[in-house]
Amino acid sequence: MPAATAGKTAQGLLLDVDGPIASPVSRTVPAGIISDLLTLAAAGWPVVFNTGRSDAFIREQVMAPMIASGIPAGVTFHAVCEKGATWFSFTADGAGEVFVDRGLALPVSFADDVRDLVEEKYADLMFFDETKLAMVSVEQTLTATNADYLVGQRAFDDDALEIMHSHDMGACRLDREEPDSNGDIEYRVDPTIISTDIESVRVGKDVGAERALTLVAPFMDIPRTWRTVGDSRTDYAMADYLHEQGFDVAHVDVRPADGVPAKPYDVMTEGELIHEEAGAAFLARCVASLS
């Protein structure tokens, strides 16, 4: 990867995708964000996407527009997907091999039952994400309103838990304090504003952050300063992990209305801006810092 701009110290960027990078409405990435990420990577900043999204989504919505805009020679981007369960890197030549931690994958029979549930009961509100390789996810359709989806999501999450019980899968819900199983908790149901992820309890944004460092290390000296960006409380786990490892980190929260927790590192916001508009403002300031 190219050296950092003369006189400037490269910072690492660890970015959630839905919300701060991709619009939660259109699911696409604004051209300005693509341009700024390319500029920062060309200046020697490691850029890693740390997302619950699949590798297929990153290839389509992030990698493809970057390649179309022109990824500079020598620049490599990294993507940790499905909250650490899958990962790959990409350059101007396209995506490299996609790696999957099979030990984190959910049973195929459970995924089949969830697919049937969506098709039979919730198809007007959500679709089954066929691109996931380890977790099981459903997502709001583009034609449904978010208000309607969120109502249906609560019923879906309850139904999904019933299916998990029928498969003897110990599970809990992140939006409830008490577990939904008397047995060992191996899986969790994680609802977001446009989706529900059903996943191993051993995945998470901290797992993604650890994976990110291993991906960056072969390409450059790992920067001591990092900025993590996310739109949910679970995204703080990225900064938590880096702080625990001794890095200088600050977290950028692009949806602070959900509540900003007290942290031993700086938490940044972009005024009244939220989601991809806040992400764009933050990245623009990063680019301005290069001059």
Rank of each mutant, 00 (worst) to 15 (best):
D55L: 13
D148H: 08
I185E: 04
T39P: 03
P72A: 12
L213K: 04
G7C: 09
H275Y: 15
P107C: 08
W45P: 00
P218V: 15
G208I: 03
R173W: 10
S289A: 15
G259A: 13
S35E: 11
A43E: 11
A250R: 08
M220W: 11
F49S: 01
T225A: 12
T28H: 13
S137C: 11
L117W: 02
L290N: 03
A257V: 11
D36N: 14
E82A: 05
L106P: 00
L106K: 01
V207H: 00
H165S: 12
S291T: 15
A85F: 01
H251Y: 06
A92G: 12
F127C: 00
R115P: 06
L15T: 06
A209Y: 05
A56M: 10
T5S: 14
C81G: 06
P264W: 05
T214W: 02
L213P: 05
V100Q: 13
L125M: 01
S195R: 01
G70H: 07
S195T: 13
M126P: 00
V287Y: 03
S35M: 06
F57E: 10
T225V: 12
G12Y: 05
H243F: 11
G96N: 08
T141S: 07
E120N: 10
K263S: 03
C81Q: 04
R102G: 07
A123V: 14
A79C: 13
V138N: 02
I34E: 09
R188V: 13
I193T: 15
V98C: 09
D112C: 06
R211W: 02
I222R: 07
C286W: 02
V108M: 00
A73H: 04
L37G: 08
V29K: 04
G52Q: 02
D266Q: 13
A42P: 09
V118F: 06
L117K: 05
G271D: 07
H165V: 10
F77K: 08
S109V: 10
D266W: 03
M164S: 05
L125V: 08
F88N: 06
A42W: 10
V203I: 12
Y187N: 02
D184I: 14
G183P: 02
A212R: 01
T269V: 13
V100H: 10
E97Q: 15
A111F: 07
A160P: 00
H243T: 09
I58Y: 04
C172R: 14
I34R: 03
T91E: 12
M126T: 07
A171R: 02
M268N: 01
A209W: 03
N182W: 10
L14Y: 00
P191L: 09
Q140E: 07
V29Q: 05
A257I: 11
L38K: 03
Y241Q: 14
L15S: 12
Q61S: 15
E162G: 08
V229R: 01
Q245A: 14
A43K: 04
H275R: 08
L13Q: 09
S109M: 11
G70I: 15
Q245L: 08
F156C: 01
R233F: 06
G70R: 06
A31P: 01
G84V: 11
V216C: 07
P20M: 08
D129F: 03
R255T: 13
